[in-house]
Amino acid sequence: MSTQPIRTDVTIVGAGPCGLFAVFELGLLDLKCHLVDILDRPGGQCAELYPEKPIYDIPAISVCTGQELTDKLMAQITPFEPTFHLNQMAESLEKTADGWWRLTTDIGTVLESKVLVIAAGGGSFVPKKPPIKGIEDFEGRSVFYAVRKMDQFRGKHLVIAGGGDSALDWALNLQPLAASVTLVHRRDEFRAAPDSVNKMRALVAEGQMRLEIAQIASLEGADGQLSGVVLKDKERGEWPLACDTLLAFYGLTMKLGPVAEFGLNLHENLIPVDTEKFQSSTEGIFAIGDINWYPGKLKLILSGFHEAALMAQAAVRVAYPERKIRFQYTTSSTDLQQKLGVA
């Protein structure tokens, strides 16, 4: 699938705190931004890993949670009307005949911009894959880490592994159409919405769903088709459970992913940049936040904010080389205040 390319000044890969603040710094310089993120909401690690954990080292904010920081950044960049392309991964990059960067996502969104900013943090959040021997032979055929079409699982004998909201939600949603559902979790406690847990327990009590307090030891099957899983626990040892499909929900992990194939120089999976412009080895491609590397780099949100400000100064000169750039302060510039909607 491919769609009509969207042309904009800057495409930002990653909508974590640094990507969001880059919208602000670029916006003050009149650059419009589109952001791509694999998560379903902005915030990156702040939203996914520690939405409720306190952060104490944001200048002038004694304490805020990851989610509060995200919310504040979203409010701060509202005047610049960024466009978000969520639930999709930046997949490939090429240069157009007229010198724009064309970024295509895994669901076919095409963004063309004069400047590309990679603010991808630790990489894309992707599902954790259990380190079970031979599991990759079944992936995509009878082992899955996400549900795209529920109907694919109609009439299947499902084993659903995990104890969080994803595992519970899919167990409940797929139960009416699957031939059978067995939920497998390592302990008889679930960190999921209480309502989901209650519904699951009711189905188990009625015999409509099975619950196994165990872990998956190994897989059985051939040619990509699962015939069962072997469960284990300390008291009972190992025992087989017949099934034809395994859905595993063990949370997310970060992988650099296709950015590694963008033709940039890499240093231990990080993008080396200069500390004047935070530009990569390729002109017009910048990298800010946890994904970049330079001598003395500290992976702090505040470092990413600084990098965003300097990157923006360089980016506007790439995007609009003919433009004369005036350095101004938001405190005193009516022009900047108008952009922020406060004057």
Binding site: K128, P130, P131, I132, G162, G163, G164, H185, R186, R187, E189, R191, Q215, K234, Y250, G251
Partner: peptide
């Protein structure tokens, strides 16, 4: 920590 171990594999005592 106990709850977070739900996202680990081959969890033992």
């Amino acid at each position: 920590e106990e709850a977070m171990l739900d996202q680990a594999f081959d969890v033992r005592e």
